[in-house]
Design a protein around this nucleic acid. Structure first.
Length: 562
RNA sequence: UGUCCGAUGGUGUAGUGGCAGCACAGCAGAUUUUGGUUCUGUUAGCCUAGGUUCGAGUCCUAGUCGGAUAACCA
């Protein structure tokens, strides 16, 4: 794995978390900072998690601390080992190393003991109310709640009941353990929050050892505390939980971890809800969590994104506490920026039309030298075969060109990249008037793309030798979600109907230059003018399939749209 | 209708009470063997109203707008 610790760009200013950490370090509050990334293993990681990962790991890296990976696995009915494996793979792919791999379930015994301690201190009680009663008695945001009739049970009775809860004497939902705080608290989270529920469910790690499971609010802060997490960084919706986080730590008198909140990432045209992504997978709308149209980390990986580009993106968007919606074009910019420097340039023709060079000797073949990457001298050159018949892009020819069209048109001379200047002399059409062949002459003196008389051509186009071309399939992706951010609202319920049917992949046969024959899966290329692609597997054995990872900026297209 | 959080160009993000900066997007030009890339220039901003102050994006008060919050989810 590459070492990214030396690779952190120097910034002129600090974000608010860096400022907090620097102050804590300076004041001597902590000698070493410890953060954690705490996913629940109930789904695959998406680009929103990438922000959290970059933050937690990045902060520790920057200040010489460490980061734990902790699976927040307190709800066995939703969780699975498939997810823990994928999460670990994705974090590593992003380039981060965790100091320890922990599980909230590792702490179940300790958490239980602490719960007993709270009962003994009269700070927790067993409640026999039904779900509906609890809900009703919690009050509303404007009305205070009502005390449970079981709220004032004796310590002995609570202890007995709780022990029996653990033993499995009661059915699911029969009783719960609650913290005894204040049913009239203006913060709903403090109205005697539930600590434990009975769940006779098999856990992916602890099996059937437990039939009571701690709730997030009871488990999270304590888990942080056990690991001596100094800065527990989470998203904004948890800020209302912070008083409770602090309450448990204070009552238990354990290591005082602190929680800090930041605004989660929102991307235009992208659904980030785990629930809906799961729905897409289970309903078979996509081929899996790693479908290249998914905003998951593995989806982006298969699509051809690089970890570096995602890290740079996260750096660029910054971190703050106000809600934000980042334009996907910034993500794409970050990818292009990286791929521009690293991706091999290669010629391919997606939408071919044949060009015959009439004055080129029949049967002659040549090899042209092509530069692999103009931005990287070490990338070297390759040989590209050339002969009398070639394919060019249909878009690179216009019979009746508008003004300022630089590419091929009748009488117009263009450069074939790395090859010759050609001039269009004649067009061959079928009965329906479709252009089936373009006949050109070439200038033998312009070999390599320069004319000795120094004349300039404005247009340069890509091509592929008809005789030597290999055929492959190309997938062009649209974004799966064409509605802006249908989050967890009623509007979001209809989001599946809002999926653009055109977002389905287009599998299209095309012509590639022969050097692509040796391509390996997940190699990345810039197809001249056509965008960035990466090689992927396909159902058909031996077939080369290219996924479009990202498009090129195209000012010509923009001009046309005006 | 409570409580909590937030508000700086189109989008994000900086700004010990002292000239509002940076990135992306946009626009204009230069370079270019792909109308890409690169480079240069440039448009555009402190939610409102009061107050404190020589001086307020920053501090105070009130309001407006946005978000979170009433799961035996995390």
């Amino acid at each position: 794995m590459e070492d990214i610790s030396k690779n952190i760009p120097e910034k002129e200013s600090l974000n608010f978390l860096e400022e907090i950490i620097e102050n804590d370090l300076k004041s001597g509050k902590y000698k070493e900072i410890i953060t954690r990334f705490p996913p629940e293993p109930n789904g695959y990681l998406h680009i929103g998690h990438a922000k959290s990962i970059c933050l937690n790991f990045g902060l520790a890296l920057k200040y010489g601390g460490k980061t734990n990976l902790r699976f927040d696995d307190t709800n066995p009915v939703k969780e699975d080992v498939e997810y823990v494996d994928s999460i670990k793979e994705d974090i590593q792919w992003l380039g981060f190393k965790w100091a320890n791999e922990f599980y909230a379930s590792d702490y179940f015994e300790q958490l239980y003991e602490w719960a007993v301690q709270l009962i003994k201190k009269g700070l927790a009680y067993v409640d026999d109310q039904t779900l509906e009663e609890i809900r009703k008695n919690r009050g509303t945001v404007t009305e205070p709640g009502k005390d449970s009739p079981f709220r004032n049970r004796s310590v002995e009775e609570n202890l007995d009941l709780f022990i029996r809860m653990r033993k499995g004497e009661f059915a699911d939902g029969a009783r719960i353990l609650r913290a005894k705080i204040d049913m009239a608290h203006p913060n709903m989270q403090m109205r005697d929050p539930i600590m434990y529920r009975i769940l006779h469910a098999s856990h992916h790690r602890t099996g059937d050892k437990w039939c009571i499971y701690p709730m997030y609010d009871y488990a999270h802060g304590e888990s942080d505390s056990i690991e001596k997490i100094t800065h527990s960084i989470c998203t904004l919706e948890f800020d209302i939980h912070r008083p409770l986080y602090d309450w448990f730590i204070e009552q238990l008198d354990i290591f005082p971890s602190h929680q800090y909140e930041f605004a989660r990432l929102n991307l235009t045209y992208t659904v980030m809800s785990k629930r809906k992504l799961l729905q897409l997978v289970t309903e078979g709308r996509v081929t899996g969590w790693d479908d290249p149209r998914m905003p998951t980390i593995c989806g982006f990986r298969r699509r051809g994104y690089t970890p570096e580009s995602i890290r740079n993106f996260c750096e660029r968007i910054g971190v703050a506490k106000r809600d934000n919606v980042i334009d996907v074009s910034l993500l794409e910019f970050s990818l292009r920026e990286h791929l521009n420097k690293t991706a091999k340039r290669v010629m391919a023709v997606l939408n071919p039309v044949k060009v015959v060079i009439t004055n080129y000797p029949e049967g002659q073949e040549e090899e042209m030298d092509a530069i692999n990457n103009p931005e990287d001298e070490n990338a070297g050159t390759r040989k590209v075969p050339f002969c009398k018949e070639i394919y060019i892009e249909r878009d690179d020819f216009m019979e009746n060109p508008p003004k300022k069209y630089f590419r091929l048109s009748p009488g117009q001379e263009v450069r074939l990249r790395y090859a010759y200047f050609i001039t269009c002399q004649e067009i061959v059409k079928d009965e329906e008037g479709n252009i089936i062949e373009i006949r050109c002459t070439y200038d033998p003196a312009s070999r390599g793309g320069n004319s000795p008389d120094g004349r300039k051509v404005k247009g340069t186009i890509h091509w592929v030798s008809a005789k030597h071309a290999i055929q492959a399939e190309v997938r062009l992706f649209d974004r799966l979600f064409n509605k802006e951010n249908p989050e967890d609202t009623e509007e979001g319920q209809t989001f599946l109907e809002n999926i653009n049917p055109d977002s389905l992949q287009i599998l299209k046969s095309c012509y590639l230059e022969p050097s692509l024959k040796e391509s390996q899966r997940l190699e990345k290329f810039q197809f001249e003018r056509l965008g960035y692609f990466n090689v992927d597997y396909d159902s058909k054995p031996g077939a080369l399939v290219f996924n479009r990872t990202c498009t090129l900026k195209d000012s010509w297209q923009k001009e046309q749209e005006k």
